[in-house]
């Protein structure tokens, strides 16, 4: 795949990055993400991923009130998410529509995860945000145990921060810049700290 002239301009600030270049941007454009949960943080993550050129898809339910923001307006609440997202993306970034060569999943919990990855789970433990990520080489059981401690939560400023961090975690995985498995906590005052993973039986304390 070669970048079109419009894409060279639109993603010029990504292409300038040593970690990306044109090849990295092409990789983002070839990666898809399915939204598997619901919430403010997930909606923000989806908007950043779409702006970066990843193909974003969602289906099967109405838009929730806490999902308004960059892509969805107050008028969209209660209407079908898939159609509303499609209309917004057509205007925001048509590159975010279409068939990707690989598809990962991102969900604000409760959410399901399937396929090879990347997977990013966003959620909450009280007012503390949590993010768990897994690439194709990360253990799915460790991911699910760790993410299982999180649930739905607030939709304020922290949710926007958690969503942007979720998009960052997903793009790092798509670009091959990430460890295969990890997580972080986000405090109410904005501090990010590493999260201890809840290891599955076969990885014990030493697995990756």
């Amino acid at each position: 795949m070669t970048l079109s002239e419009d894409q060279v301009v639109r993603y010029s600030r990504h292409i300038l990055l040593s970690a990306l270049g044109g090849k990295g941007q092409e990789r983002l454009l070839a990666t898809g993400v399915t939204l598997t949960g619901q919430g403010a943080a997930q909606a923000v993550a989806a908007a950043y991923l779409a702006a970066s050129g990843l193909k974003v898809s969602a289906k099967g339910r109405p838009v929730a009130p806490e999902e308004t923001g960059f892509l969805l307006a107050a008028d969209d609440v209660g209407r079908p998410l898939e159609a509303m997202m499609r209309a917004a993306l057509l205007d925001a970034n048509p590159d975010a529509l279409g068939q990707p060569s690989e598809v990962g999943a991102l969900g604000e919990l409760p959410a399901g995860f399937s396929g090879t990855g990347p997977w990013v789970a966003l959620g909450w433990s009280g007012n503390r945000g949590g993010l768990v990520y897994r690439g194709r080489d990360g253990c799915a059981a460790c991911f699910e145990r760790t993410a299982g401690a999180l649930s739905n939560g607030p939709a304020g400023a922290s949710a926007v921060l958690l969503g942007a961090l979720g998009a960052l975690a997903f793009e790092r995985l798509a670009l091959g810049l990430s460890q295969p498995l990890g997580g972080l906590w986000l405090s109410e005052t904005g501090e990010v700290e590493p999260m201890d993973l809840d290891r599955c039986a076969s990885h014990g304390q030493t697995g990756r």
Binding site: L3, V8, V9, S12, I15, L16, G21, G22, K23
Partner: peptide, 12 residues
């Protein structure tokens, strides 16, 4: 910085 964007793509 478009000059360097295009230079970088040509180098790639």
């Amino acid at each position: 910085p478009m000059t360097y964007v295009r230079t970088k793509l040509a180098l790639e």
